[in-house]
C-alpha cells in the first residue's frame, strides 16, 4: 500500500470490497485495507482538525488572566483545556493512519499544515470570548456532529467524545453574550461589535461554496463527509438567527431574510454574499493573526524543549535502574 499515484491492478477488487463496506455503513479500522487516497484525505483532514483545536486555544487563552469573574475564569480554563484534549484525541486518530505526531507538529510549526482560518482573527474584548463560544463552537458542532458517523472508526470515536464535551462550550459562550446583552449600554455595544466581527468569519468556517469545493463528492462517497459545506452553513444560520434575536443582537447581514420556500417549505434564511476574497486571503496566511499564532506555537515548542529532554532523561535513568534491579 505504498503507491501514492494510481492504484495497482491487483488492488481493484480490494477497492471494490472497501467501497461496499462503506456503502453497508461498516467502519474502516486502522489495519483494514484502504485506498491510498482515502488514507491521505483522512490524514490531511484529521491533522487540520487537530491543529485547529490546538491553535484555537490561543485566542481564548488570551483572556484567561482577564476573565471578569472567578467563575468565568474557571469555565474558560476548562474550555481551553478541553480544546487541548480534543487536539490530542485527533492527533491519535491521525497517527493510526501512519503519520507520526512529530511530523504533524513540524508541519504545523513550519506553516505547511493548515488549521481553521477562524483562529487568525484577534480577540480584543471579553465579548469576543462569548462570540467565539457561541458562533465558532456552534459552527464547529454543526460540522462535527455528522463526523461522529464518519466511515473511519478512530476518527468517528474521537468525534463522539469531542461532541459530548463541546456542547458546554457553546452554552458558555452564549451565556457570556446574553449577560452582556442584558447589561449596560456599553456592554450591549461590546457584544454587538463582537458579533459583527465574528459573524462572517464563522459563516466562512464551513468552507468554500459547494460549486468551488471539488473534493466534496469523493468525501461524500467515502462517508468522510455527510453533508455539503452549503448545507451545513445554512443549517448554522437557521439555528443562530433566532438565538441572536432572543438576546436583542443584530446579525450584520442586511440581506438576511426569511424564505419560506427553503427546506422543502419548512423555511430558512437566505443570506447575503460571502466575501470569499477575504476567506482565501486568510487561508493563504495573510489574516490579521496568522504570524502571531504560529510564532506563539513555535515559542511554546522551543521553550518546552528542556521539559521534553528532562522527561526522556528521567525515563532512561529509571529504565537503567529497573534493569539493574532485575
Amino acid at each position: 500500500m505504498n503507491s501514492d499515484t494510481n492504484n495497482s491492478v491487483n488492488e481493484i477488487p480490494l477497492i471494490e470490497e472497501f467501497q461496499k463496506k462503506i456503502d453497508r455503513d461498516e467502519k474502516i479500522e486502522p489495519k483494514d485495507f484502504m485506498p491510498e487516497a482515502y488514507r491521505k484525505t483522512l490524514i490531511r483532514q484529521i491533522g487540520q482538525h487537530a491543529h485547529s483545536e490546538v491553535v484555537g486555544m490561543l485566542p481564548e487563552g488570551n483572556w484567561i488572566t482577564r476573565a471578569p469573574t472567578l467563575k468565568r475564569k474557571l469555565s474558560l480554563l476548562a474550555k481551553v483545556q478541553d480544546e487541548a484534549g480534543h487536539g490530542l484525541y485527533l492527533y491519535c486518530a491521525a497517527e493510526t493512519l501512519g503519520k507520526s505526531r512529530l511530523e504533524m507538529t513540524e508541519e504545523l510549526l513550519s506553516g505547511k499544515a493548515k488549521y481553521s482560518s477562524i483562529f487568525n482573527y484577534p480577540t480584543p474584548t471579553w465579548a469576543d470570548i462569548g462570540a467565539i463560544g457561541w458562533l465558532v463552537d456552534g459552527a464547529a458542532i454543526m460540522n462535527q456532529i455528522p463526523l461522529c458517523r464518519c466511515s473511519y472508526g478512530p476518527y468517528a470515536r474521537a468525534m463522539i467524545r469531542i461532541c459530548k464535551e463541546e456542547s458546554f462550550h457553546q452554552r458558555q459562550g452564549y451565556e457570556i453574550m446574553l449577560t452582556l446583552a442584558r447589561g449596560t449600554k456599553d456592554q450591549r455595544e461590546m457584544a454587538q461589535r463582537a458579533l459583527n466581527r465574528w459573524w462572517w468569519p464563522s459563516v466562512m468556517m464551513f468552507g468554500p461554496s459547494d460549486k468551488d469545493s471539488p473534493n466534496t463528492e469523493t468525501s461524500v462517497k467515502w462517508k468522510i463527509k455527510r453533508h455539503t459545506n452549503d448545507e451545513l452553513r445554512e443549517k448554522f444560520i437557521d439555528a443562530i438567527v433566532p438565538q441572536a434575536k432572543k438576546i436583542g443582537l443584530t446579525i450584520p447581514d442586511k440581506d438576511l431574510k426569511w424564505d419560506k420556500k427553503r427546506n422543502n417549505g419548512l423555511g430558512g434564511y437566505a443570506h447575503g454574499k460571502i466575501d470569499w476574497e477575504e476567506f482565501w486571503k486568510v487561508v493563504k496566511g495573510n489574516g490579521p493573526m496568522n504570524n502571531e499564532r504560529i510564532s506563539s506555537k513555535k515559542k511554546a515548542w522551543d521553550e518546552g524543549l528542556w521539559v521534553r529532554n528532562a522527561a526522556r532523561m528521567h525515563a532512561s535513568k529509571n529504565q537503567s535502574t529497573v534493569v539493574a534491579a532485575e
Partner: peptide, 19 residues
C-alpha cells in the same frame, strides 16, 4: 478510550488522566 504519548509509565498515567 484512546492513546497518548509519554516518556515513561508515570508520565503515561498522568497524561492519560489529563486527556
Amino acid at each position: 478510550c484512546g492513546s497518548i504519548h509519554a516518556s515513561d509509565r508515570n508520565m503515561a498515567i498522568l497524561a492519560a488522566r489529563n486527556v
